[in-house]
Design a protein around this nucleic acid. Structure first.
Length: 198
DNA sequence: GTTCTAGAAC
DNA sequence: GTTCTAGAAC
């Protein structure tokens, strides 16, 4: 049996503290001018980018320029920033996309994966090859998706965001449902195909 | 967040 | 045999 040689070592793993993938949105906020391929709008307060793995035909992320790690870090003093994010999103849909607001959802994931507060602007077709896991479906078609007005009212009423994490985690083990007719499906491809004509 | 892939489900 | 899901990734 040949003995291992010095060049048989495995590739060096990523060992830095924290998960670098979860920081991937930060550069867009820090220097939007350097990412004009993804950035579709920016000003002093916010950035709007195309989602790199769109879960529908139209999918954008709206983020503050200032670092706010997640919805759980929102303060009551951020209420005007939220209003601004909503206003600019609606303007983008109307003026740039020239689409009807009713074909979109604006909102936040109850338990986001990526750092930096981001509001989704997503069309309701959910027709995209990047939507490939049950978790994706759940995150946009159930209460896991918190519409802008709900998050706004949560912050305004409670002076901070209050999230029942257990409730949202439990959604992942519910059966796959069509959000229009509530019929249950066994697989993700089957519900996606059904949804197109429901 | 995604990729990869083993093995379950069909 | 092929489709599909779900968990590890150091």
């Amino acid at each position: 049996t040949p003995t291992p040689t010095s060049n048989s070592a495995k590739p060096k793993p990523i060992t830095s503290i924290g998960n670098r993938w979860s920081d991937a949105l930060l550069p867009y906020c820090k220097s939007p001018e350097d990412h004009k391929d993804s950035v579709v709008y920016y000003d002093d307060q916010i950035v709007i980018i195309r989602d790199y793995y769109p879960k529908a035909k139209h999918h954008y992320l709206v983020m503050p320029r200032r670092i706010i790690p997640s919805i759980n870090d929102l303060k009551i003093t951020d209420i005007e920033l939220l209003e601004y994010m909503n206003e600019k999103s609606i303007s983008y849909i109307h003026q740039t996309l020239k689409c009807d607001l009713s074909m979109f959802m604006l909102g936040f994931h109850a338990i986001p994966s990526m750092k930096q507060l981001h509001m989704h602007i997503i069309s309701k077709d959910f027709d995209s090859p990047s939507l490939k896991k049950k978790e994706h479906w759940v995150s946009f078609t159930t209460d896991f998706f918190i519409p802008y007005p709900s998050l706004y009212n949560n912050l305004k009423f409670n002076q901070k965001i209050i999230i029942d994490k257990e409730k949202y985690l439990a959604l992942k083990s519910d059966p796959i449902k069509c959000p229009k007719c509530s019929n249950v499906f066994k697989t993700l491809p089957s519900v996606k195909e059904h949804y197109k004509s429901c």
